[in-house]
């Protein structure tokens, strides 16, 4: 369908952008060869903590478990009170109220996974209902999943329209769109899904639910960051990025930050535009920070699990 309105140009369905997998691998390996030491390391680890979406997404999560996680979010480490707080706590929607209660008075956001997470196999109508409900319950951020089946059918309009509808249902809450890159399989698909999500109104694009392997990888994250860069240059809009799942060590987190720094620069080095979705990462970062302070390698026994 021809569109003549020039103002619509940026909302046109994105064109196919080819991605070379080997080229991506090579670029990623360059990031991981950056050597981050001493003060530079401490600074980055603190930044990473502030970008953390502390996550629990088990089908058997209970209010008690969520409370524990929220307390951990509030008090990362008694001995280091100067540490920044994490970006958000990420939970299933029905537990938003519990988190809200514990995190009252803090600046820690509450993120709720929504839209029949993790499969997304539900009618749009029910997806919108749950989204509105979670926002009403106090969620600051909604993490939705795209309809991968429709994506593979080639029904990109459906995928885009659905995102736009959920975005509308979010109201003031920020929308993170999970592409589930582990199912998209190719980097070409990751790029296409990223473009669709951004054009449809995503505030963040996110790699994974954490329920599918592989979850976040440096490769898909780079492709998504490059899509964000192109979108920024085309529209002036800054879209956030959240790699989620599979990032368990401080060293990995540093490599992601190197990638972020060298792809998007200063403006994105903030929790407003970058998050790590992780459950085990916090403690590894804390252990590294204590090691930098004391000079001694640390044991997990000295760090609370939640």
């Amino acid at each position: 369908m021809p569109r003549n309105n020039a103002a619509l140009a940026v909302t046109l369905p994105p064109q196919f952008v080819p991605i070379d997998e080997v080229g991506i691998d090579e670029r990623v390996s360059r990031f991981s060869k950056r050597s981050i030491k001493k003060s530079s390391k401490v600074q980055a680890l603190k930044l990473a903590l502030s970008m953390l979406d502390l996550t629990t997404l088990s089908a058997h999560d209970t209010p008690e478990r969520v409370r524990q996680l929220c307390h951990k979010a509030k008090n990362l480490l008694e001995t280091m009170p100067e540490l920044p707080h994490v970006g958000a706590v990420c939970v299933y929607g029905p537990l938003v109220k519990v988190a809200k209660e514990v995190l009252k008075g803090t600046k820690i956001h509450i993120a709720a996974v929504s839209t029949a997470f993790p499969s997304g196999m539900a009618p749009l109508k029910t997806k919108l209902i749950e989204t509105r409900q979670f926002v009403a319950d106090g969620a600051d951020e909604i993490d939705m999943v795209i309809s991968r089946g429709k994506f593979f059918e080639g029904d990109y309009d459906y995928v885009a329209d659905e995102i736009a509808a959920v975005k509308e249902a979010c109201g003031k809450a920020h929308l993170k769109v999970i592409l589930e890159t582990g199912e998209l399989n190719t980097l070409d698909n990751v790029r296409r899904a990223s473009d669709i999500a951004m054009h449809a109104g995503a505030d963040f694009i996110k790699t994974s639910t954490g329920k599918v392997q592989p979850a976040a990888t440096p490769q898909v994250t780079l492709v998504m960051l490059e899509a964000i860069r192109d979108f920024y240059y085309a529209t002036g809009k800054k879209i956030g990025m959240k790699p989620a799942g599979g990032i368990a060590t401080a060293k990995q987190a540093l490599h992601y930050l190197v990638m972020l720094r060298e792809t998007l620069g200063e403006a994105w080095l903030t929790p407003d535009l970058f998050r790590f979705g992780a459950s085990k990462l916090a403690n590894d970062i804390l252990m590294q920070l204590v090691k930098e302070q004391t000079g001694a390698y640390q044991s997990i026994d000295y760090f609370s699990m939640e």
Binding site: I36, K37, K38, R229, Y232, Y233, E266, A267
Partner: peptide
Amino acid sequence: KSLDFKTSWEYAPA
């Protein structure tokens, strides 16, 4: 619409 690579976080000498 320009990106700034003079960042507040730099790499220490290694």
